[in-house]
Amino acid sequence: MTDLPALQLRNVGLTFPRRRGVRALFGGRQSTDFVALEGIDLEVKRGEVLGVIGRNGSGKSTMLRVMAGVFSPDVGEAKASGRVSLLASLGTGFAGHLTGRENAMLYGSVLGRSREQMLDLMNGIIEFSELHDFIDEPLRTYSSGMRARLGLAVVSALDPDILLIDEVLGVGDPVFKEKSKKKILDMVGGAGTVVLVSHSFGLMTSICDRIVHMKGGHIDFVGEPQEAISAYYRSEGVDLEVSA
């Protein structure tokens, strides 16, 4: 029980069809398919903050979506212990014409919470997001930072066992970034597990226990944050003295 991982990916592979033929739904893999993930073996320990870095298109977000259950792996298996919540850019997926409060309710219900639970959590959400009166304005009037704040407020209030964060902290202002960082560390303190995709290496080195470097759908390196960042620059052929 003690060393049971929070997330376990075993030899996960995922391809995306490139040709839009109806055959794609019936036939198996086609030679034209785009390989998004291949041979991903990864265990995320409980209570760990795992960072994921890599160039655009290296498979970071796709891996997070496999962890969240959005895509089922074509080969291999993905397992989790506990509830997984993915926090990605809020706003596109939700309703611009509904208010922040209604979107929070919607988001909560999407993540499997009941009406009563959400009503209980609402004050905390409003407080953490610092939206004040804006909470009853339509979401379309929000700035991207405000949306990110609402998203993080909802997801962290739900207290998921495993939180996946896809590049949303970057848009908040510095004060909110500090607050989010603290929130994430609090969650981990309370036995939560966080997987974080981000390009802000400063944030990553300060909160991650380990960092995964992804390249072309493969895992290139897993380990100490500084070493992973060095691996990133090395693999891209950038000669850089990493000085934290």
Partner: peptide
């Protein structure tokens, strides 16, 4: 939803 403690498949 399965309780924390056992590994379960994601997104079945």
């Amino acid at each position: 939803m399965s309780p924390v403690g056992g590994l379960h498949d994601i997104g079945v």
